[in-house]
């Protein structure tokens, strides 16, 4: 039997940083951008049936901020985030994570990069059912053949309110608890960037609010960069800024959003279609 080569990792440019201090940009460049998409084009299908999901979309995700991506169904918001996370190929344009151009990486390099530098929270089916909560949290590290820093893990568990639930399996946890475990997993490797795809989509409003508050706190107190896709204006209001997409392009940005202001912008985006 062969042993998996979990110990080989691509060198990353991250350096350990104090927990609570905002993370200094890893690059000497003056722009404090965690990730950037430049003129990204992505087409699904061919010929007549071709759909241009991203039509030269460009966006900058500032470091240490909580960014929400919004847009009507089919606006390309999920495609954009998947592209930023290196989960999806793009037809043209560039995706930069710090100084790394994802479009030049091989499949294996992108996998290792996800493991080392990115965190994910999905809408549903976020955890591996066979593993306990603690094992699920540690998953990205154990896949890389490392162990979580005990102090950091303890702090995460404490903040997520998961003490006493660590030995439970996903089936024994509520939806909100499962999603908090997923957030713990996304944060445990101290990634450069956390992607959350409709993280409250399957939760009731109280559990959803707790999850969103936690994501906001992670940015405020830990300086964690987070990108969240949502279609819920209330969820978007937890973010520091909102990026609006329509027909595959970034059409607007909104700083310090509230539910009302987001709703108003959304209404404006929808208007031309409805007229």
């Amino acid at each position: 039997m062969t042993t998996p080569t979990t110990t080989t990792t691509t060198p990353t440019t991250t350096t350990p940083t104090p927990l609570t201090a905002p993370r200094p940009d890893e690059t000497p460049a003056p722009t404090p951008a965690a990730a950037r998409a430049v003129d990204v084009v992505k087409t699904y299908g061919r010929g007549e049936a071709a759909v241009r999901a991203l039509d030269s979309a460009s966006v900058t995700i500032p470091s240490g901020r909580f960014t929400a991506v919004m847009g009507p169904s089919g606006s390309g918001k999920s495609t954009l985030v998947h592209a930023l996370a290196g989960l999806d190929h793009i037809d043209s344009g560039r995706i930069l994570l710090g100084n790394t151009d994802l479009t030049t990486l091989s499949e294996r390099e992108r996998t290792l990069l996800r493991r080392e530098r990115l965190g994910f929270v999905f809408q549903a089916f976020n955890l591996v059912p066979a593993l306990t909560a603690a094992e699920n949290i540690a998953l990205p590290l154990t896949l890389a053949g490392r162990r979580p820093d005990p102090a950091w893990r303890a702090e995460l568990v404490d903040m997520l309110g998961l003490g006493g639930r660590l030995e439970h399996r996903p089936a024994q946890l509520s939806g909100g608890q499962q999603q908090r475990v997923a957030i713990g997993r996304a944060l445990v490797a101290r990634p450069d960037l956390v992607f959350a795809d409709e993280p409250t989509g399957n939760l009731d409003s109280r559990s959803g609010a707790a999850v969103l508050a936690f994501l906001r706190d992670a940015t405020r107190s830990l300086g964690q960069t987070i990108v969240m896709v949502t279609h819920d204006p209330v969820a978007a209001a937890y973010a520091d800024q909102v990026v609006f997409l329509s027909d595959g392009r970034v059409v607007d940005e909104l700083a310090a959003p509230t539910a009302e202001s987001v709703l108003a912008r959304m209404a404006r985006l929808d208007a031309p279609e409805g007229a």
Binding site: P4, T6, T111, R114, F120, F122, F125, L139, L143
Partner: peptide, 19 residues
């Protein structure tokens, strides 16, 4: 499928998956 997708997303390499 979804579980495998999740594992891949959080950084399981193809080799690890095959293994």
């Amino acid at each position: 499928t979804r579980e495998i997708g999740l594992l891949r997303a959080v950084g399981m390499t193809r080799r690890q998956l095959r293994w």
